[in-house]
Every structure is written in structure tokens, then in C-alpha cells.
Simulated scan of single mutants.
Amino acid sequence: MEHADTTLGRAEVDDACRADVRLVLEELLVNTVRHGYPDGRRGTIEIKLEARTDAVRLELRDDGQPFNPLEQEPPDLPGDLADREVGGLGLHLARSIASGFEYARDARGNRVVVRFDPSPPDEPTP
């Protein structure tokens, strides 16, 4: 996470977008480790983060079990929390705060690309 913070800071990405990127990155990593490698085997997770003041692109690749986060139904939010099924809320939040969310599976494994549109920097006042 520290490397992501450094990259986002260097690109002067606004604080709100930085928080969104960190939240989505953490959610994707936790889900990948928890569900991509259920048998406890070792795996590889690659993260690429490209940041500019006007756009952030996060790419996560893994060689875990196939998992398309776009196929997950949004959780049923109304009602009592005690009656809800566990899971799905983090992915729902991640998809709702990102500007774009893509998934593909190829010979190397899963690939998720998430885009964020940071707020434009404040324009100087004359």
C-alpha cells in the first residue's frame, strides 16, 4: 500500500481518489488471496498502478482460481444486517466507486482493470 500511496502522491492525485484506490486495491487483494487460492497453494499477484492527476488505472493479475467480480450480484442492502448473507459488500463498494471496472481471464489467469477519475485540481483564482 505504501508504494501505491507514493505513486498517487507523486502524480498529485486528490485525497478522495487516493482513498478510493487504496480501498479497491485492498478489497481486490483480500478477495484474491482468500478465494483465488483456497487450497493454500502459492500464487502470483501482479499489480500495476498508473496515476496521473486526471486518471488512475489499477491493474491486478493473478494466477488463482477463475473469478469474475462482475458476475457477482450486488448484495441485498435493505433490512437487518444480522439477516444478510456474508460477502459481496466489498466488491459492490469497489465497483460503485470506480469509473470503470473490467475483467478478463486468459492463459496467465485473472486480470482486473479498474479506472478512477480523480477530481480536477483546483484552478488558480486570478
Rank of each mutant, 00 (worst) to 15 (best):
D76E: 15
D76G: 09
P78T: 14
P78H: 13
P78M: 09
G79C: 11
G79I: 07
G79H: 11
G79L: 08
D80K: 12
D80W: 07
D80C: 11
D80R: 14
L81R: 14
L81P: 14
L81W: 11
L81M: 12
A82V: 10
A82W: 06
A82E: 13
A82Q: 13
D83F: 05
D83N: 09
D83G: 08
D83I: 03
R84L: 12
R84W: 12
E85H: 11
E85S: 14
E85V: 12
V86P: 09
V86S: 11
V86G: 05
G87H: 04
G87R: 02
G87Q: 02
G87L: 06
G88V: 09
G88P: 00
G88C: 05
G88S: 06
L89S: 03
L89R: 09
L89A: 05
L89I: 14
G90K: 09
G90E: 05
G90C: 08
L91V: 04
H92L: 07
H92G: 05
L93V: 15
L93Q: 03
L93H: 03
L93M: 13
A94S: 09
R95H: 03
R95K: 14
R95A: 10
S96R: 13
S96M: 12
S96Y: 04
I97P: 01
I97S: 07
I97Y: 07
I97V: 15
A98I: 05
A98F: 02
S99W: 03
S99M: 03
S99T: 15
G100Q: 10
G100K: 11
F101R: 02
F101M: 04
F101W: 07
F101I: 04
E102H: 13
E102V: 08
E102F: 10
Y103I: 10
Y103E: 03
Y103K: 08
Y103V: 06
A104M: 06
A104V: 12
R105Y: 11
D106M: 09
D106P: 06
D106R: 09
A107V: 14
A107N: 09
A107Q: 12
A107W: 08
A107T: 14
R108D: 11
R108H: 10
G109K: 00
G109S: 06
N110S: 02
R111P: 01
R111W: 04
V112G: 02
V112D: 00
V112A: 02
V112S: 06
V112H: 03
V113M: 08
V113H: 02
V114K: 00
V114Q: 00
V114T: 07
R115F: 11
R115W: 15
R115I: 01
R115T: 15
F116T: 04
F116H: 04
